[in-house]
Design a protein around this nucleic acid. Sequence first.
DNA 1: TTAATCTTGATGCAGTTGCATCGAATGCTA
DNA 2: TAGCATTCGATGCAACTGCATCAAGATTAA
Lengths: 149, 149
Amino acid sequence: MSDTAPSDAVINAWVRLVRAQQGVLGAVEADLKRAGFPPLGWYDVLLELRHARDEGLRPLEIEGRLLLAQHNVSRLLDRMERAGYVERRPCVEDGRGQIVVATHAGHDLMRRMWPIYQAAIDKHVGAKLQSEAQAQTLARLLGRLIDGD
Amino acid sequence: MSDTAPSDAVINAWVRLVRAQQGVLGAVEADLKRAGFPPLGWYDVLLELRHARDEGLRPLEIEGRLLLAQHNVSRLLDRMERAGYVERRPCVEDGRGQIVVATHAGHDLMRRMWPIYQAAIDKHVGAKLQSEAQAQTLARLLGRLIDGD
DNA sequence: TTAATCTTGATGCAGTTGCATCGAATGCTA
DNA sequence: TAGCATTCGATGCAACTGCATCAAGATTAA
């Protein structure tokens, strides 16, 4: 909470962070859409659900892991359920809540998306870095920006 | 356009790029909103207009510099014009086009936003990096992701 | 137990974005 | 110069997001 003015390097990092993400994410999403797949957010949800295995996840947990607003999770699940990729089950421990699990079609979608997704990451991130070391350094520095607030 | 699978480091850089930007941008936007200011996009437009000085900019140029879709620029300018921050003038060289210039209120808004914006960048980016060198390295690596394709 | 409070998830409404299309003006080709 | 294709910016419509609010269930305290 300092009143310190950020240095030029910091401002530059900020500007490029926004631009780089905007460009790369846009390009990856475009590749997925071009291949006829739903947005990346759907993949993210399915991936979290796969990590949870059979137990499924509460919407609240999805919210926390993907940093989404509550009402957005609710509606994202609506769409995914309508498309047949997830299923909402009543939660026995908490009558207010529910358990979300991926359907077979959901797992299948994830499996079919991955090759395209993977290729897009390689094309729009991997190919633009010059070495493994650069990727590691970038990941490490970005990691510093993520936690703590 | 290789079929190479991205390395773990590349995938990690990708994931963190998305998360870091999401978190940092959200935090900066929240700081601005809390202070009663419009979204960052408005500042971006005004900043581009200031660089253009008196000549103003064509919507097409704004589109290119900010990587926005044409229809989004059109509507963003609608809102900013309605709020009195920009003005659209007919373009003498091209009857289809127009020239966008910032009004006095627009310049003033930018001036008033900068202290808050600056503090937010420092708080959410600068304070999380450990040195000037880290900021420079991060900016350089992010720069690699921006151009060329 | 009962009442007050908090948590979980859904929903109405307004604002914003994406997509397709349109009208107007320009530039190109003949 | 006439006709056709292209470019510039606007707009109708559907989808998505943010915000406020709500209902139902859980938790706490008297």
